[in-house]
Design a protein around this nucleic acid. Structure first.
Lengths: 232, 232
DNA sequence: TCGACTTTGTGCATCACTTCACAAAGGCAC
DNA sequence: GTGCCTTTGTGAAGTGATGCACAAAGTCGA
């Protein structure tokens, strides 16, 4: 989580909520571009991205005035502008630590390697896995973590290790100067200020779904059951 | 996204933001329980879950008054209450559609099957994959989707298919009565009201990280480059 | 050139969530 | 009991996001 002092109005203020939606717009735009659509209105793009058109216009207005009134947005131009804003016009070297089922899936995930990102290293602590060829790379031993980061200019690390190893890996990559981490391990990582951690947690998503599903089925938590545990 | 009419104050109002954090608290509490901690203060639990203690207290207050002033919260009791609220005291049958790299990873993911969830079906359209044994289940053909959902009481479906197949799968599971979907495919699913879709998108998370990383490296988007594309 | 039409960009009201700060509530020692 | 200490639960203020509604700005046909 990035913390800003509330006084200074953010170096070039794009709200977090907007940033989180830009990739969505970008994907919708790429879909339009594939179908050779030249321009798109905020209304149409909003539908494609699954948001409200007023919100979309406000979001885009944070980047600048890239639309033409009465016409809409030029698809290619907007793709370029959003890509640039998101930093996808440059190449980011990504290392994936933990080559279990999930790590493998990530390494092979097409959209992952798409624009802007390049898997530059796969690391695992298990000697059994080290040496495997996955997605065109050879899995290296976790001991090499620091040197891989340094030598290949890795700036984003994906942690796909078991929960128990995650914090240690996290500490090491931060010590190596990495400040952007995507964490798949089900733990809350402790990091110094200035380091960005984003978390993807499959079981949390399922639990949120279960909550809503329960509401739909019987209007709320199961009642009538009494607490059977001991209370100190 | 669940929509409520703003008039009625929500059947039993727990804010979405709170629901999204309950699984986090639950995990932190389970960690404490493993270490045989009997009671915990909001401050300590907040640190373990990585949130502000005032927020944690307000979140928990939405469930009821389960704390004891001057003491804190009974760990076991709170685990029970949160589990019940999230609907984890009952068993949810989950089907995973799409058994590629990601689907396999999900099927094997331990925390996935943990409390409350049971993988009751694995389906894929590829005859090459059908019949494979994964995580103790046999992969079935997608044609069986409706019958698997009906026969095994599946109430939550995980879509891990390619983007192109996702909407069709989505339509079919909804037609079968499923109203909770966890979508890993990089598309915006169109669903009727009353259906809950949660989305996990790996490339979006990476793009958000890239945005912040770019800010850190050079204080903003790359400047000086001029737009080289044609503008209609 | 003009007028009708379309669509953007944004001021403003509203809503939701967060955080502060403190009174109320309970435990515990004596 | 009584009084002190700790910690909860919550009113109230603050912050940020959302969505409406419309003026401004542009296109296009005649």
């Amino acid at each position: 989580m990035i913390r800003r002092t509330p006084q200074q109005p953010r170096e070039r203020g794009i709200p977090d909520a907007t940033v989180a939606r830009l990739p969505l717009y970008l994907r919708a735009l790429n879909g339009l571009a594939e179908r050779a659509v030249a321009t798109v209105s905020s209304e149409d793009l909003a539908v494609a991205a699954g948001v409200n058109s007023a919100k979309l216009r406000k979001d885009l207005s944070h980047l600048g005035s890239y639309g033409t009134r009465g016409v809409g947005y030029d698809v290619q131009y907007l793709i370029y502008q959003i890509s640039r804003e998101l930093g996808l016009t440059q190449d980011w070297a990504v290392a994936i630590v933990g080559v279990g089922n999930l790590g493998r899936a990530l390494a092979n995930y097409g959209g992952f390697v798409s624009r802007g990102f390049r898997v530059a290293g796969l690391l695992d602590a298990d000697p059994e896995v080290v040496g495997d060829h996955i997605a065109g790379l050879v899995v290296e031993h976790s001991d090499e973590l620091e040197s891989v980061i340094a030598k290949r200019g890795v700036s984003i690390v994906v942690i796909a290790t078991p929960a128990t190893a995650a914090q240690a890996v996290c500490d090491r990559v931060i010590a190596s100067g990495v400040t952007s981490i995507l964490n798949f391990a089900p733990v809350v990582l402790t990091v110094p200020a200035g380091v960005d951690v984003r978390k993807v947690d499959l079981s949390i998503e399922l639990q949120i779904l279960a909550f809503h599903e329960q509401r739909k089925v019987n209007g709320g938590p199961v009642m009538g059951e009494e607490w059977a545990g001991e209370v100190s």
